[in-house]
Design a protein around this nucleic acid. Sequence first.
DNA 1: CAGGTTCTTGTGGAAATGACCATATCAATG
DNA 2: CATTGATATGGTCATTTCCACAAGAACCTG
Lengths: 248, 248
Amino acid sequence: MATRTYDPQEFPPFAVTVDMVVLTMSRGRLHVLLVRRGVAPFKGMWAIPGGFKRPRESLLEAAQRELLEETGVDGADLLRQLGAYGDPDRDPRMNVVTVAYFAVLRDVQGIAGGTDAAAAALVPVSEALGEDFEPLAFDHGRILRDAIERIRADLILTGIATAFVGRTFTLAELRAVYEEAWGVRIDGANFRRSVLADEGWVIPTGRRAPSGSAGGKPAELYRAGRKWRHGTPIRPGRPNGTRRRESR
Amino acid sequence: MATRTYDPQEFPPFAVTVDMVVLTMSRGRLHVLLVRRGVAPFKGMWAIPGGFKRPRESLLEAAQRELLEETGVDGADLLRQLGAYGDPDRDPRMNVVTVAYFAVLRDVQGIAGGTDAAAAALVPVSEALGEDFEPLAFDHGRILRDAIERIRADLILTGIATAFVGRTFTLAELRAVYEEAWGVRIDGANFRRSVLADEGWVIPTGRRAPSGSAGGKPAELYRAGRKWRHGTPIRPGRPNGTRRRESR
DNA sequence: CAGGTTCTTGTGGAAATGACCATATCAATG
DNA sequence: CATTGATATGGTCATTTCCACAAGAACCTG
């Protein structure tokens, strides 16, 4: 039929939830916020936070509300929709369609503080997706995998890299975001040239970051410019065969 | 709460639908399949095809079924999820969350034939999104806009360009896909070198396409190689404007 | 101060990009 | 049938970008 038959009563109802992949960069590694489920189904297993959508709120508002409840962070601009998941048996009790969002945060302390410490944890993504890690509840493993793929794409298409770092940051911190997410090594000198070539990407603050424990010249602190709203000056290296030694 | 309260009975039910943005390239322009709604709400208005999700099928299966019903095309591999839309008032009758998919087809004739011709039409995207065109039903205008944005991104990240052309195609046809979707002009000679530089992108068939009505040297026909599954050799040009004629 | 670490600047070759020219091969026209 | 117009194909060339590495500068620790 070219037109949908419209009789809502004929069609069994679904429950609609929103789930969130909360990502952050901690000690140079990508982490995801996981919570222990306290109720059935999948009680006791790790899951990504989420909850039911209410009738009078939009999907984004639902995600925003859950983000606030789970992490204490109020930021709708940080949330981006990842996709919908609706396999018939993804929830053993009833038919639940969930809409997944992901958010990139930087305030690591605030995340752990907003919720019960025993029931929430920041887990390195490589571990959470590793073979040794316990499977996540529902299809949250797949959702997490999709989120990582999405992040990799958004790093190419958008300026989401700046969401991982603080209001002021060093170029090394920003570079580490790309290196960790893409699993590549980027030459510091070339990276520096790329973001400083044009105005509007990073703005020097005049201040300097404290040197790390290993010493070294203190790096200059920058603010993110407006150009990140429309893209990124960093492009993924060519998958060429001219790779150098792995140096590790 | 760190854990979701799990009592489905508390939460009002939602209807879940799938809607599809069916795109095709016809006479060098990007077209979208629209249908006339025959029932309320939004009766008589243009809309993108779609229908209710059934309890025992996945979202992708629902979209696949609808695609088959609407266009006669059976291709789950052509469908990609676009996103979920769940604003409270997007459907005046009840709370409906829709999951949008988009599909890129090439068989234009089959689309018009599969359904009532009077109730379905291929409309140029630029017209459907233009000011003069009548508004689409529901929030389908926004969904269509999002789909076009997504196509532009997928042209960068994936090899979706080959989905617009036939099993065999000329390089000019493939080039036209990028030119139309990005709104740019690409030099034919340079485009040719990009896709022929490495093996695996396009494979010559030895045959030649008939010249167009305007004459011209007949172009060689190619098949798509396997590399398109992992990306594209074509990159969006930079905002031009550097140097004009000078030298000499 | 010596040695180590990190940031920063400099440099040269390789590769990609973009524009243009020249030629080949067809259809349509008169 | 020769001309014209259009398109495909092959080639050249200057510029820009990319990338690896070298060297200097600034800071820490011991």
